[in-house]
Design a protein around this nucleic acid. Structure first.
Lengths: 211, 211
DNA sequence: TTGACAAGTCACCGCATGGTGACATATAGG
DNA sequence: CCTATATGTCACCATGCGGTGACTTGTCAA
């Protein structure tokens, strides 16, 4: 009715994002998107070309947290931070930001079972961003040590990621209640404990926590 | 042709497991299973009742590693172990055993996006098993301490789990090459490093490793 | 005013899925 | 031998999917 192609494009993209966040990838096919957008599906083909292109157009919106967001402060400040503090901040930032992004979560869930061109691109982009973080100056001294900061970082990072992704379909994980914010705080404290121990600091546990 | 119902049942279950391991849940529908088993799909309904029951029958085969397998030795010996050693062994056992079980992996991937009655049951069973491990005697002293062993254990456990599940569709994770056994050894060492630091031991890194 | 083209609508195709009813046949018990 | 039943075969249904061709209608410019 409205005869405004740009508006229609936006309706489609919006509906896609909504479906993705609420129902996951499986229920976000061409027909479902058209239905949710209140638009004929032929327009999706006309304006985007098909599902892959729609996905790509949607993805270019950028739903991956930038370094600033991970840090909670301008990225330039990272250079002045000590390695332990920086690691703690980045990992907890990752947890915080990922929890806020249902669409990003859904894409990451999808990546676990479907391997296609686009998921590959997305993963590669994240990979690159992750490596950049690891290459930040304060970590430089540790790279050459006998410790394997990359592996330790990847492990904790992966752990937080998994728990966030799992929280959609599970309530408990080894006694932790993934529905309660209190238990997420326990996890943040666990990150602190582990990093404190790992970096050999006697920093009081939880001093950087929320309370 | 063979007119042996038990044999047919086994063919169906086998085919289901094969499909599950090789192609994942999505490609293991009724039609696909019947095709792979070389059997008419109506027999699946006759013998099992439908997909949920087939899944349940298959799941009752037990594809979750027992405590013995996790430990790599009789479960009774756990009582004599020190907490750090036990934690290390359990976590690395988890990694080792999960990597050996493509079907278990596939189910865990599936659990991340689909929540139904059966996945709930499976997760609950695992949850119970996991809690039992946490309740093992050597960990008792830590439960009351100011440290949160459950959260730390869950975090590392989740990290290893995620990396194993992710390895199916990704090659790299923060610089780690998930295709190379060497990098998995790096991860095992990272577990050692973290636990050593966490438990405050000066144990030589990697002394418990493979080499 | 009229004509060209963009924007939107409708009907259809082929295909695969989950699911079921009706039928053929082998096997065992009377 | 004959019959009842378990086993297996075949044909079919409704539904939903991704995808496309052909049509109508609005809009804007010449």
């Amino acid at each position: 009715m409205s005869r405004d192609s740009e508006e229609t494009r936006q309706k489609i993209l919006k509906a896609f994002g909504r479906l993705l966040a609420e129902q996951g990838f499986e229920n976000a096919g061409i027909n479902a998107v058209a239905r949710a957008a209140g638009v004929d599906k032929v327009l999706i083909y006309r304006y985007f070309g098909g599902m892959p292109q729609l996905l790509r157009a949607f993805a270019s919106g950028g739903f991956w947290p930038a370094t600033d967001e991970l840090l909670g402060r301008p990225a330039a400040e990272a250079a002045h931070m000590e390695a332990p503090e920086l690691a703690r901040t980045l990992l907890k930032g990752h947890l915080r930001e990922l929890r806020l992004r249902p669409v990003t979560q859904e894409i990451m869930r999808w990546e676990m079972i479907r391997k296609n061109e686009l998921t590959g691109e997305l993963a590669e982009a994240r990979e690159k961003a992750g490596l950049e973080l690891l290459g930040l100056e304060p970590f430089g001294s540790l790279t050459a040590s006998d410790r394997d900061l990359a592996a330790v970082g990847a492990l904790i990072h992966a752990g937080l990621t998994y728990l966030v992704l799992r929280a959609k379909t599970a309530d408990l994980y080894m006694g932790l209640d993934l529905r309660r914010d209190e238990d997420w705080e326990r996890l943040e404290k666990a990150v602190d404990e582990l990093l404190d121990a790992y970096f050999g600091q006697s920093r009081a546990f939880g001093a950087a926590g929320g309370e």
